[in-house]
Simulated assay, not measured.
Amino acid sequence: MKRILFLILGFVQIAFGQSEKGSKVFWEELKKHCGQTYEGTITAGATPNDPFSGKKLVMHVRSCAENHIKIPFFVGEDKSRTWVLTFDNDVITLKHDHRHQDGSEDKVTQYGGTASNSGLPNIQSFPADQFTADLIGYASNNVWWITLDENSFTYNLRRIGTERVFSVTFDLKKPIATPDAPWGWEGK
């Protein structure tokens, strides 16, 4: 009887999706890229005055621990940005760590949000949290999401209620040379 029950449960898991939470599958897939660097292109929201336009966009999956992944994001020579992902209780949090060239924190830093559920294996969504709303009032309606598959990693931003949308897609099939440390990471 137990064998039949396990077979039925196994069939249900196969028929209706993976047995692992989407966030765990996503997390493990992202960790496979630890140490790798990729170049990206803006795939939505580019404007002529955008500080990202015309710049080399690079992400480096620099630091992977059991519950933290840190991904510096360089815009040309600007090495001020790091995406910090944290995995806790089957949900992922995204924060934006912004630094000055001397390594000190920018006054607008540590904003982001926590997924409201475990999400899917190839997409995680992060609505702005209260800290973000208090820090940057106009960003209180932000939703960030990351898509991940075998070919690409895409970082996205949508400001609900506005036309603001931004996406940058990185080609995971073409690793590039590892850059120098981001601002504030020297010696780490």
Rank of each mutant, 00 (worst) to 15 (best):
Y155R: 04
K188R: 15
H96S: 07
E66H: 06
K55Q: 15
H98K: 14
R81I: 05
E28L: 04
T162P: 00
H96Y: 09
T43W: 03
P51C: 08
K56P: 01
D171R: 04
F170Q: 01
K21I: 08
F166M: 12
T132M: 08
F26E: 00
D134H: 10
T47L: 08
E150W: 10
D78N: 15
A181E: 14
E28S: 02
D88A: 01
N141C: 08
G161H: 09
S152G: 06
G112T: 11
E105T: 14
E29Y: 06
G40W: 01
L85Q: 00
K2D: 14
S118V: 09
V58F: 00
F11K: 08
R158Q: 12
I176A: 00
F166D: 07
R62M: 14
G187R: 04
S116M: 14
S118G: 09
V165M: 13
G22S: 08
D149Y: 04
V25L: 13
H68M: 10
Q36N: 13
K174A: 13
A46D: 11
G113H: 04
P48Y: 12
F52M: 11
I92C: 01
T109D: 09
E186D: 14
W145C: 04
D134V: 05
D97G: 03
V91E: 02
H68A: 05
I71Y: 00
E66Y: 02
E66T: 08
V108Y: 14
N151R: 10
T169M: 04
E20N: 11
L9Q: 08
W83N: 07
G10Q: 09
G45H: 02
V58Y: 00
N142K: 09
A139N: 06
H60W: 15
G10C: 11
Q110D: 13
D50L: 12
R158C: 09
A177H: 07
K32A: 06
H96R: 07
M1F: 15
L5V: 15
I71A: 01
Q124S: 05
M59S: 03
P127G: 11
L9I: 13
D50G: 09
S23Q: 05
P48L: 11
Q101S: 12
K173T: 15
K56F: 02
F26K: 02
W145L: 02
E77I: 09
A139V: 05
T86W: 01
N67H: 12
K55W: 05
P127I: 11
T37I: 08
S23E: 03
K174F: 07
S80A: 10
H98P: 02
P121F: 04
H33N: 11
V61L: 03
A139E: 08
I176Q: 05
T41D: 12
N117D: 15
A128R: 03
F131R: 10
I92Y: 02
E66D: 13
